[in-house]
């Protein structure tokens, strides 16, 4: 029996129909009106709220997108502001675009100082205009002197550097002197040494006299005196900066080398007595030079060898 047939049979069953009729007759219950209102109200509100939420969803989504993308407009604004500021800076400061400035910037020069130079020069020129003619001349002379002195000092330094390069032995000596720090005396101590000790003056003149000629002569003494008297004046000029101070040290070194050369010449000329005196004078000028301290011992040893020809030869070698 198929389902359709069964259903037909089921529907045509008298007993079932009777039961069906009976059931339909008595089964008339309905939900209360309150329940109807509840269900219908819920259905309607669900539809309305769904539409409201749908309408609200769109702006929320847009809001979210905007919230996460805040940095995009900010970056645009930052780029625009920076480019505008650079453009305005260049427009109002044309010096920034000059090749000198660009070069100086590329070389790492301090632009700030240079940028103020024209103004400083202008102020200086104004001051110059206001000054009387005599004062101007004096000031110009002073400036010229200062510039010349500076030039001389610079030339000396350059010369000494050149000598250092050409004469490695002397350079070694200079280094050793530099290692013994009290090589350079201050002008005051040097003047004390020269003036206060009576015997010292004579001792100093002796080796210095040999600078011009191996035989004693008075002329070099005056030259030495000139040199010593000129020294404080020059140093007072040199004390203006680190560079000039360095040049005085190098000049002292040169002088000391000259003295040592003279000592060697006396030694070669076998003038022992003069050599001893010159050494004593030298020690008074450069009292803390250890290398020179050794020299008397060396001379004593040499004296022993002197008597023999071998010693002379070895000395010459």
């Amino acid at each position: 029996m198929s389902n359709k047939e069964f259903e037909d049979e089921f529907d045509q069953d008298k007993e079932f129909l009777t039961l069906h009729e009976k059931y339909k007759a008595v089964s008339t219950e309905e939900p209360s009106e309150a329940i109807d209102l509840n269900v219908l109200g819920a259905a309607h509100s669900a539809v309305n709220s769904h539409h409201e939420t749908n309408n609200e969803e769109t702006p929320d989504k847009i809001k979210k997108i905007n919230k996460h993308a805040w940095y995009v407009p900010v970056s645009y604004v930052a780029v625009i502001v920076l480019s505008l500021s650079v453009f305005l800076k260049l427009a109002f400061d044309p010096e920034l675009m000059t090749p000198e400035f660009i070069e100086s910037e590329l070389n790492g020069a301090d632009f700030v100082e240079e940028s103020f130079l024209p103004e400083v020069n202008r102020q200086y020129a104004d001051e110059q205009d206001k000054m009387p003619a005599e004062q101007k001349k004096i000031k110009q002379n002073q400036q010229r002197q200062v510039v010349e002195l500076q030039k001389e000092r610079l030339e000396e330094v350059a010369r000494s550097q050149r000598k250092e390069k050409s004469e490695p032995k002397k350079r070694m000596l200079l280094k050793s002197q530099a290692a013994s720090k009290p090589l350079v005396m201050s002008p005051s101590t040097r003047s004390e040494v020269l003036n206060n000790k009576a015997g010292a003056a004579a001792e100093v003149t002796a080796p210095m006299a040999l600078m011009s000629s191996p035989v004693g002569d008075q002329a070099p003494v005056s030259a030495l005196a000139q040199e010593t008297t000129q020294m404080p004046a020059q140093e007072s000029v040199q004390d203006t900066g680190g560079l000039t101070q360095r040049s005085t040290e190098e000049a002292d070194n040169e002088r000391q080398i000259k003295h040592i050369k003279e000592l060697l010449k006396l030694f070669e000329a076998k003038k022992l007595e003069e050599l001893k005196k010159a050494l004593a004078a030298y020690r008074k000028i450069y009292p803390y030079n250890k290398e020179i301290e050794r020299l008397p011992q060396v001379i004593q040893e040499l004296e022993k060898h002197w008597k023999t020809e071998k010693g002379v030869k070895s000395l010459q070698n």
Partner: peptide
Amino acid sequence: NYRDGTAAAFDVLYARHKGGLYRYVL
């Protein structure tokens, strides 16, 4: 229709089925 937002469609639907469903549950 109710799914698409016609609330009145639900009213008709409810009226058709409320009695039978209520009695079935009861």
